[in-house]
Amino acid sequence: MPRTAPPGAPPYAPPGWPPGVRAPGVPGWEPTAVSWLLDVCPPDYRGYPGLRRHPLVLARFAVLHVEASQAAVNRGLSEARGVLRDVADEVEIAAAIDTWHREAARLIGVRRAVGLVEEALRGRRYVARM
């Protein structure tokens, strides 16, 4: 886990920080975080002005959305063979399972990134490890 930066430390984006989002503490970093968080969330979230006005609330919505996606992937993996056997052959089922595994791996990274952004919006600043 990244250490919290001492006052006056230069801005730093820790490993897992989302690409395209400026490091916390850099001028204008929050609008880049809001834009990225909206990209992570369902498109309909862009229509809720309160989420745009309150980045930390948006971050919490994003965390819950990603965690729900992780739960859906886990359910898909656990049910794949039983649910899909009536509509797909073994090759297609194996491809679906592979897709769910890839999505599970991607979501682990997204969840980490959303968590880092949420912590930064709460005031946490990171420092590079030497």
Score class of each variant (00 low, 15 high):
residue 98 D to M: 06
residue 2 P to N: 15
residue 127 V to D: 11
residue 112 R to H: 00
residue 87 V to E: 05
residue 119 E to Y: 07
residue 99 T to F: 13
residue 103 E to A: 12
residue 109 G to D: 11
residue 72 A to T: 06
residue 112 R to C: 01
residue 67 E to W: 01
residue 21 V to M: 09
residue 25 G to F: 04
residue 40 V to F: 06
residue 62 A to D: 04
residue 74 N to F: 08
residue 18 P to K: 09
residue 102 R to P: 00
residue 20 G to H: 04
residue 125 R to E: 04
residue 98 D to P: 02
residue 28 G to A: 05
residue 13 A to P: 00
residue 22 R to Y: 02
residue 107 L to F: 09
residue 80 A to V: 05
residue 74 N to T: 14
residue 47 G to K: 15
residue 88 A to E: 09
residue 65 H to V: 03
residue 121 L to N: 01
residue 21 V to A: 07
residue 38 L to Y: 08
residue 95 A to Y: 02
residue 19 P to E: 15
residue 14 P to G: 01
residue 28 G to C: 03
residue 86 D to A: 14
residue 71 A to W: 10
residue 59 A to W: 02
residue 88 A to H: 13
residue 68 A to Y: 00
residue 3 R to V: 12
residue 67 E to Q: 09
residue 82 G to M: 04
residue 102 R to N: 02
residue 41 C to Y: 01
residue 90 E to L: 13
residue 106 R to H: 07
residue 26 V to N: 02
residue 80 A to W: 03
residue 22 R to H: 09
residue 119 E to N: 12
residue 61 F to Q: 13
residue 74 N to V: 11
residue 20 G to Y: 03
residue 111 R to E: 13
residue 110 V to T: 14
residue 121 L to M: 03
residue 31 P to H: 10
residue 15 P to C: 05
residue 27 P to Q: 00
residue 71 A to E: 15
residue 13 A to K: 04
residue 22 R to G: 09
residue 16 G to H: 01
residue 15 P to E: 14
residue 118 E to Q: 14
residue 23 A to I: 07
residue 78 S to H: 08
residue 122 R to I: 00
residue 117 V to C: 07
residue 69 S to Q: 15
residue 122 R to K: 15
residue 105 A to P: 01
residue 39 D to R: 12
residue 104 A to V: 05
residue 14 P to S: 07
residue 29 W to Q: 07
residue 54 H to G: 12
residue 42 P to A: 15
residue 72 A to G: 08
residue 126 Y to Q: 08
residue 128 A to K: 08
residue 41 C to K: 10
residue 37 L to C: 03
residue 29 W to I: 05
residue 122 R to F: 04
residue 37 L to Y: 06
residue 73 V to N: 01
residue 26 V to S: 09
residue 89 D to W: 09
residue 36 W to R: 07
residue 40 V to Q: 10
residue 47 G to R: 13
residue 55 P to H: 02
residue 23 A to R: 10
residue 51 L to Q: 03
residue 119 E to V: 01
residue 15 P to A: 14
residue 14 P to A: 09
residue 124 R to M: 02
residue 111 R to H: 11
residue 1 M to G: 14
residue 98 D to V: 03
residue 34 V to Q: 07
residue 32 T to L: 08
residue 45 Y to G: 00
residue 9 A to N: 10
residue 74 N to K: 12
residue 93 I to C: 06
residue 99 T to A: 15
residue 92 E to Y: 02
residue 6 P to M: 08
residue 5 A to P: 07
residue 83 V to W: 02
residue 28 G to Q: 01
residue 111 R to A: 14
residue 63 V to D: 06
residue 28 G to T: 02
residue 97 I to C: 09
residue 95 A to I: 01
residue 90 E to T: 13
residue 129 R to N: 01
residue 124 R to Y: 02
residue 25 G to D: 06
residue 19 P to F: 11
residue 108 I to D: 11
residue 92 E to R: 15
residue 17 W to Q: 04
residue 82 G to Q: 12
residue 123 G to L: 05
residue 48 Y to W: 13
residue 20 G to N: 12
residue 44 D to Y: 10
residue 77 L to H: 07
residue 72 A to L: 06
residue 46 R to C: 10
residue 25 G to W: 11
residue 113 A to S: 14
residue 15 P to N: 12
residue 65 H to C: 08
